[in-house]
């Protein structure tokens, strides 16, 4: 009796459609979701001398779960972590702001360029993006070091008597971050700016709005979407950036990814590293949700 009712249901599960759905489902679950669940699990464990304790205990036919919130409490206690999270958020915010200030007029001018020039200019924006990110960051070391290109140029011009100390400061870190993430800001901005209806701007001007007023009251609101997308595409990865602070930052430019790296490789404290990771994820969940909402909105917008 039972088999008769279950069998067709099982059979119905293995349709071609379901198998096709299963392929990306299993692949992404195994590589994206399962590891994160494991990180959550380990963050609630503690470190025995060489191995990680388990939060799952099986004894006397009973499964008990032991959560150790010690790692999270320690994160709250030690002001270094708080300072580092705060400093990472600040660097990410400053990077986003500079990218916006530099990138908006830049994208605007590309979008207003004659059509045949536009594709060439866009290609020039994309070209550095295709060449190694690591090498381009490395290049800034040669530019900004005490006997580097910039200091030599300044000395040549007689502007400085002793070299400016720029490497391994928040200055070099910010320059590197703005440099690396600028294209991520420019491309979404360009995408909204190029669709901007020039007649709207003419109408505003005809009605007596000053160029500044037109820009602020017409152009900016119409390109809000590009501004939000670009800012998130810069802010989120900048917050978790490791390579740039490692190569261009200094001992005083605290970034959370470096602390995480050290916790993992130098201190070998995996539960602590996992707790740091979980808090990082919680901190980027808000901008991530915004990003997803923006994505959904544009999808809906495409259909209409």
């Amino acid at each position: 009796m039972m088999f008769k009712s279950i069998l067709p249901r099982i059979h119905g599960l293995f349709t071609v459609r379901n198998l096709v759905i299963a392929v990306p489902m299993v692949w992404l679950f195994a590589l994206a979701a399962a590891p994160l669940l494991l990180v959550l699990d380990i963050s609630l464990a503690h470190m025995n001398i060489t191995s990680v304790s388990s939060i799952w205990h099986w004894a006397d036919d009973e499964l008990t779960l032991k959560f150790n919130f010690g790692n999270y409490l320690y994160l709250g206690d030690d002001s270094l972590y708080f300072k580092t999270y705060l400093s990472s958020l600040t660097f990410a915010a400053v990077t986003t702001l500079y990218c916006l200030v530099l990138g908006y007029p830049f994208a605007y001018f590309i979008a207003r360029a004659p059509a045949h020039l536009r594709s060439v200019l866009l290609m020039l924006v994309m070209l550095p993006f295709w060449t190694s990110f690591l090498l381009r960051i490395y290049a800034w070391k040669a530019l900004l070091s005490d006997n580097g290109v910039v200091n030599q140029g300044l000395a040549e011009l007689g502007l400085v008597s002793s070299p400016l100390h720029m490497m391994h400061t928040s200055f070099s870190l910010t320059i590197g971050m703005v440099y690396a993430y600028l294209p991520f800001m420019v491309l979404p901005l360009y995408a909204t700016l190029v669709k901007l209806d020039g007649r709207m701007l003419e109408a505003a001007a005809d009605l007596g709005a000053s160029p500044f007023k037109t820009f602020w009251l017409v152009t900016v609101p119409l390109t809000k979407r590009g501004i939000i997308a670009g800012s998130l595409l810069v802010f989120i990865p900048a917050f978790g950036e490791y390579v740039i602070p490692e190569l261009l930052g200094g001992p005083r430019t605290l970034m959370i990814a470096r602390v995480l790296w050290d916790e993992f490789f130098s201190n070998n404290d995996w539960p602590m590293a996992s707790a740091v990771t979980i808090v990082m994820i919680l901190l980027i969940l808000v901008p991530m949700a915004l990003f997803n909402r923006y994505n959904d909105e544009t999808k809906l917008g495409d259909k209409s």
């Binding site: 994206a32 399962a34 380990i42 995480l260 790296w261 996992s274 990771t277 994820i281 980027i284 997803n292």
Partner: peptide, 27 residues
């Protein structure tokens, strides 16, 4: 599970590399 698939596909786009690296290594 469509929503779940979409967010699993989106997550690595915005997840910092260190997090992807650490979580995969622990697994």
């Amino acid at each position: 599970g469509r929503g779940m698939l979409a967010s699993m596909a989106n997550a690595p786009l915005v997840m910092p590399d260190v997090i992807v690296g650490i979580s995969l290594l622990l697994m």
